[in-house]
Nucleic acid binder design. Sequence first.
DNA 1: ATGAAAGCGCTAACAG
DNA 2: CTGTTAGCGCTTTCAT
Lengths: 330, 330
Amino acid sequence: MSNISDVAKKAGLSVATVSRVINNHPYVSEEKRQAVYEAMAELSYQPSSAARQMRGQSTKIIGVIVPRITNPFFSYLVDEIQQIAFQNAFQIMIFQSNESSEKELSFLELLAKKQIDGIIMCAVEQDQEVIQEFTKYGPIVLCNERFDNDQLPTVSLDQVNGAYLGVNYLLEQGYEKIAYATGGQFEEAGKDRDRNKGFNQAMADAKVPIKSEWLFVNCHTISDGRKIAREISKMSDVPEAIFTGSDEVAAGVIVEAQKLGIKVPLELAVLGFDDQPLAELTTPAITTIRQPIQTLGKETFNLMLSLLQERPYQIDGTKLQMSLVIRESA
Amino acid sequence: MSNISDVAKKAGLSVATVSRVINNHPYVSEEKRQAVYEAMAELSYQPSSAARQMRGQSTKIIGVIVPRITNPFFSYLVDEIQQIAFQNAFQIMIFQSNESSEKELSFLELLAKKQIDGIIMCAVEQDQEVIQEFTKYGPIVLCNERFDNDQLPTVSLDQVNGAYLGVNYLLEQGYEKIAYATGGQFEEAGKDRDRNKGFNQAMADAKVPIKSEWLFVNCHTISDGRKIAREISKMSDVPEAIFTGSDEVAAGVIVEAQKLGIKVPLELAVLGFDDQPLAELTTPAITTIRQPIQTLGKETFNLMLSLLQERPYQIDGTKLQMSLVIRESA
DNA sequence: ATGAAAGCGCTAACAG
DNA sequence: CTGTTAGCGCTTTCAT
């Protein structure tokens, strides 16, 4: 590997001039600039990123924390972020927090070590104060997660509205006995609180009571969905419809319900969330709430970029709307 | 951020000693070692990775190239690799080549820039010589891809056998009019050539002729699968079964076929590949060839690690067997 | 067993 | 416009 002084020697110039050319500084004559380019090409020179980093420059790497990459919602989100990062000459480093706050902390520390320029958090396990503390090392932006008093730069979708949209649709279809599967604990302040709020609000607006037996917590996977279907099948008072937190859960409910002889949507209407590819694969296909993942990813990265460059950025919220996709399951 | 000399000062020792402690060198008295640890803790000192890299040390980052992370096969593979990388204190950097050889090349160059220690290629777009060239900068291991005369360290599954297994099962079920959807071009030397070989072999062994109209090339997605179903429905001579290159394609075929009134598996048996979660979601559920992704990921990373540490590693091929998972679609 | 000091490759004053 | 030079934080001889 050749270094900057090899290039300088070859071009018959000083390292400073070479450095200036690399960094597109003004005040270099066109003639010498060309000479440097030639020398770089001949030596197939690549500036050492380590050395540049040490000089306090950026790493051109953004960390992205997700709970788990195998969840299609996140793999699509990461895909989007990575595409536009690549266009901007950034690499991204994916971290899976696996709902472990220690793991998350170890990723945050990479920012302190200056191994990455910034972090996009699509999952958060720490308290706000802890995260806030790390912002002094570099920008941290929250993506589709938020704290109630958001001090941190955040791009998020209106989950309250998303849930309201879904539950309200169920209500409009005439369903009143509505079950709900949340990814969190159905707590005031915990995970998925915004969706819970939307659910509560829609039910309250329609003056339909919520039945606590029909509340399923901590549901994320296909097999969680299957479990729900089994539980429902054993109930004496069964719900007519269920609003789930993801298409995967919905798919699980549908598949298992049918195995148990429960007709969907006739005996149990199922509403998904996300609009993942698999939503079209089940029979019946899943009616769901579409989250604009592409725009979400794009806006998040743009916000990160503007923070890095210390220029203002206005998020275009109009493109971040949830929408209802009606198929067959509800 | 405090640096090594802050720690040295605090501990009343030299930077050299601190460095020795950090790197677990011998010849440091237990007493001073403790003093250093204390000072590090008090200052919450983190060695700068940039500085270490510049000293020719490793980055503790492995790059992983996949075609696209949204493909569940790869997201599960990456998940597995990342889990065991984390256990070994490595970070992984995911690159999506999107079937573009320029993109792939730009990732390979990160190895030359010493920004990463090694590369795991789960997709390859370059010629072998090009890749070989980069091995002088660090280890490159192929994962589930291979060249015919493999010079490069490789962990791969027996795709010939996998395909043979599937097609043979179809044959055993009495199907003779068998269609085949490959991810490549059905060429002797191109992509998916091993599976093609398995297909050809199984058909030849059973003395069943291959019909070229029933060969579909370049199929990867659900919508590719749908397209196939539509084409089949228009044929005058229709196949009785189809062997696909992935569960996604199979799912697309199934969903669209049923929409068109073709009964699966009665009128068209469908065989998938991978055993992805979605294989259980369609009606009928997909009969498929299971690839041992977890073991594949683990063996690949272990091989990389051994290369990095320049010690030998024997891949345990017995755990890398394909298997047939019989469900309902064939 | 410990410390002083020489770089690793690069950028950014500073001087011309 | 261009060159000289002092570090960035760390590891590693080479002394002691």
